[in-house]
Computed example of a mutant assay.
Amino acid sequence: MERPVPVSIVVNPRQRQFEALTRAHAGDLYRYAYWLCKQDALAQDLVQETLLRAWKALDALREADAAKPWLLTILRREHARVHERKPMDTVELDDNLAEDAAWASPERHGDAAELREAMSKLPHKYREPLLLQVLGGMSCEEIAAELGQQPGAVMTQLFRARQKLKSILQGGGPEVQLGLS
């Protein structure tokens, strides 16, 4: 009786690098994508497209420390591409539909939901840098480079974003919620 020949799987260094990159940053990419689009399926698609583009351009990544901002940049651009394409058809759903338990997630209830709602009320110019810092773990300099702004302007936006967020969470008036103050 013949014994089966063991098959060894050859994994090249590039593939190992990409797998390590994916394991290290997939969770952060998903969270950031979900914050951008607020849809689970679309967030997952964005992460997949991001990783596909990252795989194709992996040789462009020079330093491992730059991987997270690089991936977040790819994800932001993928999100923008979604909106460049033709608008998707929408269907109005009855507001009286009960929320299915399968759709319930901890982020839709409690403090996380309140924080998400408050952040959605921030003007885009304040929300984006705050998300890049909080979810992306990016420094002011990295955010400034990403957004094409000066670091001082980003620091000001982050300060104002936190002040407006605090005011919204404490029940600030509509002028704060609309970013008019």
Rank of each mutant, 00 (worst) to 15 (best):
R3L: 13
V5Y: 12
S8D: 14
I9Y: 11
V10Y: 07
V11Y: 05
R14E: 12
R14S: 04
Q15C: 04
F18H: 09
F18Y: 10
L21S: 05
R23C: 11
R23G: 10
A26S: 07
G27V: 04
G27N: 06
D28W: 03
Y32E: 04
Y32T: 14
A33C: 08
W35P: 00
D40E: 14
A41N: 01
A41R: 09
Q44M: 06
E49I: 02
T50C: 06
L51H: 02
A54R: 02
L58V: 11
A60E: 13
L61T: 07
L61R: 01
A64I: 08
K68W: 00
L71Y: 02
L72G: 00
R76N: 04
R76Y: 02
A80I: 06
V82L: 06
P87F: 07
P87E: 14
D89A: 11
N96Y: 12
E99R: 15
E99T: 14
W103G: 12
A104G: 13
S105W: 09
S105L: 12
E107V: 01
G110N: 07
A113D: 13
A113P: 09
S120H: 07
P123Y: 03
L132W: 09
V134F: 15
L135R: 15
S139P: 02
Q149H: 12
A153C: 10
V154Y: 04
L165I: 05
K166G: 10
S167E: 13
Q170C: 12
G171M: 08
P174V: 10
E175V: 13
S181G: 10
S181M: 14
